[in-house]
């Protein structure tokens, strides 16, 4: 599986690439529907500071905490 890494300062650009924006409270939202906050695989809303990346296929938004990354590790195995 091909992986691209990015600098943390480019989070907004990465989100823009997938039609996402940040609301006034700092949460990742759908650009076309800013009231819809994006959810992580465990059903949590994602703040910009906790956004870690996006996974293959459908839009799976990954958070940067250890437990989310452990779950990512399992899904990639």
């Amino acid at each position: 599986m091909y992986t691209v890494t990015f600098d943390a300062k480019l989070k907004k650009l990465v989100l823009e690439a997938f039609n996402k924006d940040i609301d006034d409270s700092g949460y990742v939202v759908e650009k076309t529907n800013p009231t819809q906050r994006v959810l992580s695989p465990d059903g949590e809303e994602i703040k910009l500071e906790d956004f870690a990346g996006i996974k293959n296929g459908s839009e799976v938004f990954i958070k940067s905490d250890l437990i989310s990354l452990m779950e990512l590790c399992d899904s990639l195995s």
């Binding site: 599986m1 890494t5 870690a52 996006i54 250890l66």
Partner: peptide, 19 residues
């Protein structure tokens, strides 16, 4: 970025990749 995701790849922030 979209090409990588369309190819079922992973786009991930550098520090998270290290972790």
């Amino acid at each position: 970025l979209r090409t990588v995701i369309d190819a079922k790849g992973l786009v991930i922030e550098e520090k998270s990749k290290k972790l």
